[in-house]
Amino acid sequence: MRCTCGSPACRRWAAKRLQNWDYAETGQSPARAVESLRLEAARLMIEQSLHSLDVVARETGFRDRRHMREVFIRGFGVPPQAVRRDARRVVSS
């Protein structure tokens, strides 16, 4: 079970988990792992919703639309607009 209440106890627990992060096991730093999760959440939201890219960026924890675009290009090699365009093309086929 995972707590999402944001209480101080939960935040301390989460911080402790990040301190014990096993880089060798995951191949990613904690920051990179969180970024990867945000990126995947944003991709799914872009593909499956009609929300604007500004809303997607905000809801998935990016600073803004521009930051999300930079991370998309680094992670997927394409901007979020291309992901949305491709998802719409599949649906309309």
Rank of each mutant, 00 (worst) to 15 (best):
R69A: 08
E35P: 00
R88F: 11
L39A: 01
T4Y: 05
R85D: 13
R69P: 04
P8N: 12
L39P: 02
V71G: 06
I46A: 07
T4R: 04
A24R: 12
E47R: 10
E59H: 10
R58Q: 15
S7T: 15
T26P: 06
V83T: 11
C10Q: 14
V55E: 04
K16F: 12
E40L: 13
Q48H: 12
W13K: 13
R2A: 14
L50I: 11
R66P: 00
P80R: 05
V71F: 02
G77R: 09
R85E: 15
M68L: 09
R74A: 15
R32M: 13
A42Q: 04
S49V: 05
L37H: 03
R43K: 14
E35F: 05
S52W: 02
A9N: 13
D54L: 07
W21F: 08
C10E: 15
R43C: 00
A31M: 00
R43A: 03
P79H: 08
Q48W: 02
G75V: 08
V90A: 13
A31F: 00
A82P: 04
R63W: 06
Q81E: 15
G61C: 09
R12Q: 14
M1W: 10
L18K: 08
C5R: 11
F76P: 03
Q19T: 13
V90G: 01
V83N: 02
S93L: 14
E59P: 00
G6K: 11
H51C: 08
V91G: 07
R89A: 12
V90Y: 06
V34Y: 03
S7P: 05
V55N: 03
R63Q: 12
S52K: 09
R84L: 08
A14H: 11
R84Y: 03
S52Q: 10
R17A: 14
P30K: 02
S36L: 03
R89L: 12
H67K: 03
A87K: 07
N20F: 10
V34L: 08
A15K: 11
L37D: 05
R65M: 07
R38D: 04
Q48C: 00
E70W: 09
R12I: 13
E35H: 06
R89V: 11
A15H: 13
W21T: 02
R69T: 15
A31L: 07
E70P: 04
G61K: 05
R12V: 14
M68K: 04
R84F: 07
V90W: 12
S29L: 15
A82W: 09
V71I: 11
S36T: 06
A31I: 08
A9V: 14
M45V: 01
R43P: 01
G6L: 10
M68Y: 03
P8M: 09
L44I: 02
E40C: 04
R89W: 06
R74I: 06
R12Y: 12
R74Y: 03
S93P: 06
A33R: 01
G27E: 01
M1Y: 11
M68V: 04
R38C: 07
A33P: 01
H51W: 11
G27C: 05
A9L: 15
L53S: 07
S93F: 13
L37Y: 03
V55K: 01
